[in-house]
């Protein structure tokens, strides 16, 4: 028996909106520690890892580990039927082939339940070790989204370079080139507007903008995004999900050969 009650139901709506274009079908893994997901896009270039810790739920009951295979587009369709301030409860029986989403309005005057069929999904799980990164950039998520969107009108790839001067996003295309430099800005009064760069060594990596743009669908979840870079390792683009967890996107770099 699984029963997860999330008062901030709007968070789950935002999580699904940020996943559904990258991944079609995925297994949500439920255990005593939380509700998580790891899935790759169809070309196995990008991966998303989601964790919502059990403490973040108002009520969290998970009698035994369960894996719920869901079509993310269909799940997003159902969650779109919840209001942003609704309380969302996810329910499933151990042997059931369906999951129920219950939406309650904050004053309890409207209660809806939507039942969705589960799927058997044969997914590949990757072991991702904790890594030390050469550079970690924390910046406003809206600024990062704007940069990715702007650069993708000019080129297909972005070179992200971190030096002690700042972080530079560069692209080139048929019509020309573009460089955007963001300097460190601690913004003590408004921490959500800060740009903080922790650099062990300068690093420069090339990525497909199409995927970066897809990751920025998570912008409504968090004011800040963290971009972790190391030479010849996938970049990690992380958005915190309130106080309860994170959504991390991994993208393999492009390599010149």
């Amino acid at each position: 028996m699984l029963e997860l009650r999330l008062v901030q139901g709007g968070l789950l709506k935002k999580v699904l909106e940020s996943l559904k274009d990258l991944v079609n079908d995925a297994n949500f893994d439920c255990s005593a520690s939380g509700f998580s997901l790891q899935a790759m896009d169809s070309s196995h270039v990008a991966l998303v890892a989601l964790l919502l810790r059990s403490e973040g739920f108002e009520h969290y009951r998970c009698d035994r580990n369960l894996s719920l295979g869901m079509n993310l587009n269909n799940m997003a369709k159902m969650l779109k039927c919840a209001a942003n301030d609704d309380i969302v409860t996810i329910k499933a029986d151990d042997a059931s082939d369906s999951v129920t989403f219950m939406f309650e309005s904050p004053n309890q005057d409207k209660i809806a339940d939507f039942e969705m069929k589960l799927m058997d999904i044969d997914s590949e799980h990757l072991g991702i070790p904790e890594a030390e990164f050469q550079a970690i950039v924390r910046m406003p998520s809206a600024e990062f989204a704007r940069i990715c969107k702007d650069l993708s009108t000019i080129g297909d790839t972005v070179v992200i370079s971190v030096t002690k001067e700042g972080v530079k996003f560069s692209t080139r295309g048929d019509i020309g080139t573009a460089n955007i430099v963001c300097r460190q800005n601690p913004s003590i009064d408004k921490p959500e507007e800060a740009t903080i760069i922790e650099m062990e060594e300068p690093v420069s990596l090339t990525f497909a903008l199409r995927y970066m743009n897809s990751f920025t669908k998570a912008t409504p979840l968090a004011n800040q995004v963290t971009i972790s870079l190391s030479a010849d390792l996938p970049v990690v683009v992380e958005y915190r999900v309130a106080e309860m967890g994170y959504i991390r996107f991994y993208l393999a770099p492009k390599i010149e050969e």
Partner: peptide, 14 residues
């Protein structure tokens, strides 16, 4: 030429 790598070149399958 620039080649796009895949994630299994970095992370092992569990």
């Amino acid at each position: 030429d620039i080649f796009q790598r895949v994630l299994v070149e970095y992370f092992d399958s569990k």
